[in-house]
Amino acid sequence: MNAGAAPVVVATDVRMGYGGVQVLNGVDFTVASGEVSCIIGPSGSGKSTFLRCLNGLEPVLGGSLRVLGEEVGHTLRDGRYHPWTPKQFAAFRRNIGMVFQRFNLFAHQSALENVACGPVHVLGTPPDRARTLAMEHLDRVGLADHAHKRPHQLSGGQQQRVAIARALAMNPALMLFDEPTSALDPELVDEVLEVMKGLAAEGMTMIVVTHEIAFAREVGDRLAFFADGVVVEEGRPREVLAAPEHERTRAFLSSVLGAQEGPSRNT
């Protein structure tokens, strides 16, 4: 990692909950620039919620969460933290790309329009220029031929690749992936993972919530295991996966790996 550069994410004792249910119980987590961090954990462990806190889609209710040098949701002024206006949230999110489990492509727009949408409507890029750039981004994820198709005419894997291109079109400093392959048919997972690997190789700072253990091992610089709203264990992926220290990590890994690399995969 580039030593000396300020960390992209510093989470200190981050707490969050809704409706009387505590979802995050004090998350401590740091991401350096250029790193690929993978987050694994059982469902309900708060890993997606934490990811959504990073770009302000969910509110942080306790502790401190600094992303790209800013305290998410508040600005310090005259000795007080003032809550952000919707405009400030919007300005902050421009620098953070997000890819969703269910793609969330804009259903009324073509693939090209989806990718050009952010630059045109948020950055104010002239439409012609935005379309040219969008075409380049689509080409990069291998979908230049499908530029004029609507989302419902694309496969899940293609939709997710368009979603990645849409996020990249904003030139983000940080990319968040919320279980990007969980909603895909098994044979479509790899095409999305390939795009993500390419992105990692180019030095993009990425935080990936995933169940793809092989991807975490191969591409991740760091791996964090979430359970009950805290980071139970973290470290280099190979080390955590080979020799988990905590009983909960071991139990989770054996159940996940049993499903992914056990006999059922060979049938």
Binding site: P86, A90, F106, H108, C117, H121, V122, A167
Partner: peptide, 27 residues
């Protein structure tokens, strides 16, 4: 209109008004 459309619009950096005009209302 699917809630995910709103989230994607916000994630791109749209304000609530822009999200309504560009993404939600057309649908």
């Amino acid at each position: 209109v699917d809630r995910g459309q709103t989230e994607a619009a916000y994630a791109l950096g749209m304000t609530p008004a822009k999200r309504m005009r560009v993404i939600v209302l057309p649908q």
